[in-house]
């Protein structure tokens, strides 16, 4: 009897889990509550920013991370073409600390990047999203992390686009 009850419990947890992933109006989400900042230094909560009905691509990067800049430049070049096929939001979260936080806005502008950029200057969101090293990219769909990838090599953005197409 005890064993059957336990088995039932396990099944319920499992089913609840599957269900939670498929439900659009989830109570909880994979997005932690963490303060991040806009490029104008305004405090916002990641939970509000990364909550949308369209997929959101979130890239953790830094001004001192060369592959990150390569990846973001590649995405920026393709972004408009991709959006014609799959509506999505592109969000870049800089983990630059006080040394280089002030350089982020300048870099974003001089590179001509057109996506949303936020600052995670003491790595609070980075830690809660379990990012070890940048570049680390996520696709968040309806509050859930549906894809993630660490490091960048030439052409990785194409794999990202293939993943994005699953959520049109």
């Amino acid at each position: 009897m005890r064993q059957s009850l336990f088995m039932l419990m396990v099944l319920l947890v499992w089913a609840g889990n599957l269900n939670a992933q498929d439900t659009t109006k989830v109570q909880t989400s994979d997005i932690p509550s963490a303060e991040i900042r806009t490029l104008d230094d305004k405090i916002v909560n990641a939970r509000d920013i990364l909550n949308d009905t369209v997929p959101i691509v979130v890239s953790f990067w830094a001004t001192w991370c060369k592959p990150c800049i390569k990846e973001l430049t590649a995405i920026n070049d393709e972004m408009d073409t991709w959006k014609e096929e799959v509506p999505f939001r592109m969000v870049a979260v800089s983990i630059d600390d006080a040394r280089t936080t002030h350089m982020v806005k300048n870099l974003v502008n001089s590179k001509g990047w057109t996506f949303e950029v936020y600052l995670d200057r003491n790595s609070d969101l980075k830690k809660l999203m379990n990012v070890a090293q940048p570049p680390h990219i996520f696709i968040i769909y309806k509050g859930r992390i549906v894809y993630q990838h660490t490091s960048y090599a030439e052409g990785d953005e194409e794999a990202l686009f293939e993943e994005l197409k699953k959520y049109r």
Binding site: V10, V13, W14, G16, N17, L18, A20, T28
Partner: peptide, 25 residues
């Protein structure tokens, strides 16, 4: 069995509405 179930749901344990996440280095 438990391990398999947790594993099949994307290495994520969802316990009564909560989520466990982590990283290893």
């Amino acid at each position: 069995l438990i391990f398999l179930m947790v594993f099949t749901s994307g290495l994520k344990a969802q316990l009564t509405g909560g989520t466990i996440k982590g990283s290893f280095q």
